[in-house]
Design a protein around this nucleic acid. Structure first.
Lengths: 344, 344
DNA sequence: ACGGCGTACGTTAGCGTTAACAGATACCGT
DNA sequence: ACGGTATCTGTTAACGCTAACGTACGCCGT
């Protein structure tokens, strides 16, 4: 790989190198590379050829500083292993595809401190917008978002006060409606299995909504348990076994996510428990993993991909909702009864 | 939110604003904010206070341009829905945690064109290093990597010629050893179910290795089928049913990933097929999802998290392997027999 | 022949930060 | 009292690019 073209392989190329190689000014090269302004067809070709020949890669750092424009969108989510977030990210990527905007992902591990530092770090690159999961942030984070002077979209959840725009579903209402459906189907001794994460506000809201829904019928949760870490499917199994041992007369279990719900379902099938006759089950999310299960778990679609798309559309300025002053998009999750809630 | 402090909420703050607010030069502010050089305790506090008060967020764009240093590491993977990659990314994040380096993720959807444009885009931010999945790239991508003048780590796979460093496993060998184990356990009529992605080189190499392993014993694949899209678990079910219908005398099925393997396993359990007596099954990856299944699928751990960690360590200059000239780290996946290969 | 206009470039002056060096002050030993 | 050193702070000049404006030239109609 002896390079005849690059004078110093250590130093990276600049516009000047391309301009010298093609015999025009740096400005003209810049114009060609950005397709801006008038350049004759012949010089355009000459410049393009030289740039390609040298293997020139523009320096966006300098470009961004000079133009005061950055084509980055900061996207901050609590986790990637949750299965939900990769789908949201896909929706964002897809929608941003041909806008010239580029998503940059950051992960907080459900930690407020980390959210704060990830946000700080990302804002220091002066992105064109921020998409961030949840409505609950530290005071400092909230202040940064407010002062950033760029569009902010908080996603996943609409139960609370957004800084700017918001796209999501009401987890409270999701829980509530699930409770109504379950009570409506005649179940009375109801248990809850969920994650122990104190900072998963959405799971918390679902449970609160769920309890409120039960309360409408004068019912209280018969039992509950929380876990953290490990394989969700396995935990679903283990916890289902444990809760049924402790409270054998349960006739329904509501899981805070589909994964542990699936584990519970597999356990019940193993043990020959009559689902949904003797015991009903429901999860949350509508992950397509469930399609492959022997029986389809009742669940509620969280509109993950669409949330990503709508949020990205707002940042890209493509949203039809009020362009200024913060859009407020509440999507409606659809209850899928599956085969694990008896139909009356 | 009437701001007494910010003069113009539209324009974002600069070092100058902080310097004026604290009565020192911009340089001193810069020093305080970066903990570099000597600053007296009193000024340091005054500056910090002013910065916090104003809500100043440094402009890394300007900083990077001036210092010619960027604390970003470009990480390029083909997909996020594969379950494998989020784990690799976690490994990277974790390892980079306290190095001052920040990973930035890009997704290619298994498309060479997209890989090229994502890479170009990322290189234009002049990152400190690149971690990229796979050894197969377009000529242009390869040229960009070679000329970037920064450490490059190709991950997941070691079967090929790396540009610089490489961390991964030999998928060819993984397939080969699985074949040997299966043949060794006495299976003879062996089928393969996999993904149709022409650009998933690693799946391809596993299959090639697998066939080579069978060939050692004079065996050929009895049947095979490929799918694309949809719920992997469900596809595993459907394809298993289809292949068993077409070739009923199969005594083993090797799946290209655990997810469809799990689907196949659930199908067999449903149908009461004797696993592993009459039919053996194996997948690939060692995802912890499998822990929750009624029976543990045989698989091979792909060392996903560790790959991420080792790759990040190389970029961070923490690797013990030869610091210059490209490290070559081949991890060894461990065969886990589970309950779906009979033990002789 | 002239002004007017459009096209195709070039020039100049930053963008906000940091590297490198240059004071300024205080303190020290002799 | 002196130079020397240590500690702190300021000044200057980039970094690589682009916005805004300037200029040269050709073409047109009258």
């Amino acid at each position: 790989m002896s390079s005849k073209v690059t004078p110093d392989p250590r130093r990276s190329l600049t516009l000047r190198d391309v301009s010298e190689a093609s015999g025009v000014s740096e400005m003209t090269v810049s114009r060609v590379l950005r397709n801006r302004g008038d350049v004759s067809e012949t010089t355009r070709e000459r410049v393009l050829e030289a740039a390609k020949q040298l293997g020139y890669v523009p320096n966006k750092i300098a470009g961004a500083l000079a133009s005061q424009r950055v084509n980055l969108v900061a996207v901050i989510v609590p986790s990637l292993s949750n299965l939900v977030f990769p789908e949201v990210l896909s929706g964002i990527s897809e929608e941003l595809e041909d806008t010239g905007l580029q998503p940059v992902f950051g992960v907080t591990n459900y930690l407020e401190d980390r959210e704060e530092s990830v946000l700080y770090e990302m804002l220091s690159w002066r992105p064109s917008g921020v998409i961030i999961a949840g409505l609950e942030h530290s005071d400092a984070s909230r202040a940064m978002l407010q002062n950033a002077g760029i569009p902010i979209v908080e996603i996943m959840d609409v139960d609370g006060e957004p800084v700017d725009s918001v796209v999501g579903i009401s987890h409270r209402r999701a829980g509530l409606e699930m409770a109504r459906a379950i009570v409506g189907a005649g179940y009375r001794r109801i248990g809850f299995l969920g994650t122990k994460m104190p900072h998963d506000h959405r799971a918390r809201k679902r449970m609160e909504g769920f309890e409120a829904g039960l309360a409408e019928a004068g019912i209280e949760l018969a039992d509950r348990e929380f876990y953290s870490g490990g394989s969700a499917l396995l935990k679903g199994r283990e916890m289902t076994e444990a809760i049924l041992k402790r409270t054998p007369d349960l006739d329904f279990i509501y899981y805070s996510n589909d994964m542990i719900g699936a584990g519970g379902l597999l356990y019940c099938l193993d043990k020959g428990i009559d689902v949904p006759g003797k015991l009903g089950l429901a999860g949350f999310n509508g992950v397509d993993l469930l399609d492959g299960l022997p029986r389809r778990l009742a669940t509620m679609d969280a509109c993950r991909r669409e949330i990503g798309q709508r949020a990205a559309a707002i940042i890209a300025g493509r949203s039809d909702t009020g362009l200024i002053g913060g859009a407020h998009v509440e999507l409606t999750p659809v209850l899928q009864l599956g085969d694990t809630i008896r139909s009356r």
